[in-house]
Simulated scan of single mutants.
Amino acid sequence: MTRTALFVIDIQGELAQDPKTEIPHAKRIREAGDAILTKAREAIDKARANGQHSDLEIVIVQHEEKPEEGTMIRGSKSWELVFAPREGDDTEILVSKDVSDTFESNPQLASQLKARGVENIVAFGIQSEYCVRSTCNGALAAGFKVTLLQGAHSTYDVDGKKAEEIETEVGQELKEKGTDIIPWASWQP
């Protein structure tokens, strides 16, 4: 059975819940994330209720910095997750990282996912041009089929570019490398 891992990337306090530091489209990302996770968890629960193993798992990615590197320090409000994995649910895992690419930060992750039958990665989160792009590139390099959920990833306005422009550029760059880009609302687990 081909399985999919839904990557929820760095939707954390500093980036998505603090009015002083959050990205401009934090509310959109929180609302999209809530809807995506609800849909994914309902599909997992439905499979269980029917006595089946789900072909979906959820990977919650949490960025962590050292005090000299930034403010997303383990235990801080900035570091806290907006969407935590469900307690005691073996279809949801928490992965910590300290560089942009989740796979680079966790060299064993690709083989662990493949051992569980995962061939597809579906990704969304924060920041488009850093951790989202890097993790998608890492997944492609590891041989996964990758889908990026358009409208469910974003970033800050940077260097005279609006966040939406950066989202589009990252989507186009990843599409040219073989990533499927689909509107988040059309994704079906």
Rank of each mutant, 00 (worst) to 15 (best):
M1C: 10
M1L: 12
T2R: 09
T4W: 14
A5Y: 00
A5W: 00
Q12S: 08
Q17N: 09
D18I: 11
D18K: 13
P19D: 10
E22L: 14
E22F: 12
H25I: 10
H25L: 08
R30G: 07
D34A: 13
A35M: 02
L37G: 02
R41G: 00
A43W: 05
I44S: 01
D45T: 14
A47Y: 01
A47G: 01
R48E: 09
R48C: 04
H53F: 12
E57C: 08
I58P: 12
V59M: 07
Q62K: 12
H63S: 11
P67Y: 12
P67E: 15
G70N: 11
T71L: 12
I73P: 07
I73S: 05
E80F: 13
V82P: 01
V82T: 09
R86D: 02
E87L: 08
G88R: 04
D89T: 02
D89H: 04
T91F: 15
I93Q: 09
L94H: 08
K97Y: 00
D98Y: 14
V99M: 15
D101A: 15
P107Q: 06
Q112M: 07
L113T: 05
K114R: 10
G117E: 05
I121T: 00
A123Y: 09
G125T: 03
Q127Y: 02
S128Q: 10
E129V: 06
E129F: 05
S134V: 06
S134E: 13
C136D: 05
A141M: 09
A142F: 04
A142T: 06
G143C: 01
Q150A: 10
G151F: 04
G151T: 06
H153W: 05
S154T: 12
S154Q: 03
T155P: 15
Y156P: 14
Y156R: 15
D157M: 01
G160Q: 04
K161P: 09
K162P: 04
E165T: 06
E165G: 02
E167W: 03
Q172M: 09
L174V: 00
L174H: 00
K175I: 01
G178L: 00
I181S: 03
W184V: 03
A185Q: 10
W187V: 03
Q188H: 06
P189T: 11
